[in-house]
Simulated scan of single mutants.
Amino acid sequence: MSYKHNNLMAMRENYWNDTNSAQVQKEKKFFQQTLLEQAIHNNPSEDDAKYLFFSLPSIVIVKGYALGFQHDTVQAMIFKYIQDNKKLLQQKGDIKIQFRM
C-alpha cells in the first residue's frame, strides 16, 4: 500500500467514524438518500452508504473534504460515479478504489 493510499484511507475512516459532527451525520443521510434516488437500493442502510463512500474515487473524497459532500461540484462527481458503477454498487461487488492525483 502506498503512502497516499494510507492517508486517504485514514481520511475515509476518520470521516465515517466521526459521530460528533452534525455535518457528517447529515452527509451520511445524503449518501443514503442518493442511493435511493439513483435506484441503487430500495431502502439503503448506513452500511450501504458506507460502501458507496469507501468506494468513491479519491478525488471525490479530497474535494468532499474541502467543499463538503453536498456541494454541487462534488454531488455531480458522486452522481456520475454511481451511474458508471451502478451494477457493482447494487451487488456490492469488489470495486477498485480509483486514484487520480
Results as ranks from 00 to 15, higher is better:
19 T>L: 10
51 Y>K: 09
41 H>T: 05
29 K>E: 02
37 E>P: 00
80 K>W: 00
79 F>Y: 10
54 F>M: 13
86 K>C: 06
80 K>Y: 01
59 I>K: 13
59 I>P: 04
17 N>G: 06
16 W>R: 05
51 Y>I: 08
54 F>S: 07
26 K>H: 01
10 A>R: 14
57 P>L: 05
82 I>F: 02
3 Y>W: 01
81 Y>I: 09
97 I>A: 14
59 I>F: 10
18 D>Q: 06
11 M>E: 07
25 Q>L: 13
14 N>R: 11
60 V>P: 12
58 S>N: 15
30 F>V: 10
61 I>A: 10
11 M>P: 10
1 M>A: 13
96 K>G: 01
27 E>M: 03
80 K>M: 00
5 H>T: 13
12 R>H: 04
10 A>K: 14
57 P>S: 04
53 F>N: 05
18 D>Y: 08
21 S>R: 05
13 E>H: 14
2 S>Y: 01
95 I>L: 15
43 N>T: 09
43 N>F: 06
51 Y>F: 15
24 V>M: 11
53 F>G: 08
39 A>V: 03
3 Y>V: 07
17 N>H: 09
39 A>T: 01
78 I>R: 08
43 N>Q: 08
97 I>Y: 08
64 G>D: 04
50 K>V: 00
51 Y>A: 06
2 S>P: 03
98 Q>D: 09
45 S>H: 11
61 I>R: 05
55 S>T: 15
21 S>H: 06
92 K>Q: 12
30 F>N: 06
28 K>W: 12
16 W>Q: 05
29 K>H: 01
83 Q>V: 01
13 E>W: 15
26 K>T: 12
95 I>D: 11
84 D>P: 00
89 L>I: 07
97 I>S: 07
45 S>A: 14
9 M>S: 08
94 D>C: 09
50 K>F: 02
73 T>A: 02
1 M>C: 07
8 L>C: 11
74 V>F: 11
31 F>E: 02
77 M>R: 04
95 I>C: 10
14 N>M: 11
12 R>G: 04
22 A>R: 09
74 V>Y: 09
89 L>M: 05
40 I>R: 01
36 L>C: 03
21 S>D: 06
68 G>Q: 07
3 Y>A: 00
34 T>A: 05
76 A>C: 04
74 V>R: 10
79 F>V: 06
87 K>W: 09
20 N>L: 06
68 G>C: 10
97 I>M: 13
16 W>F: 09
42 N>S: 14
69 F>K: 06
83 Q>H: 04
67 L>Y: 15
47 D>M: 03
85 N>H: 11
63 K>Q: 12
78 I>W: 13
88 L>Y: 02
59 I>E: 14
73 T>Q: 12
89 L>C: 07
98 Q>I: 11
69 F>L: 04
67 L>M: 13
75 Q>W: 05
75 Q>D: 02
69 F>A: 01
42 N>V: 03
78 I>G: 04
84 D>I: 01
72 D>S: 06
76 A>R: 13
86 K>M: 07
44 P>V: 13
57 P>I: 01
82 I>S: 02
39 A>W: 00
95 I>G: 12
47 D>P: 00
90 Q>R: 02
24 V>W: 14
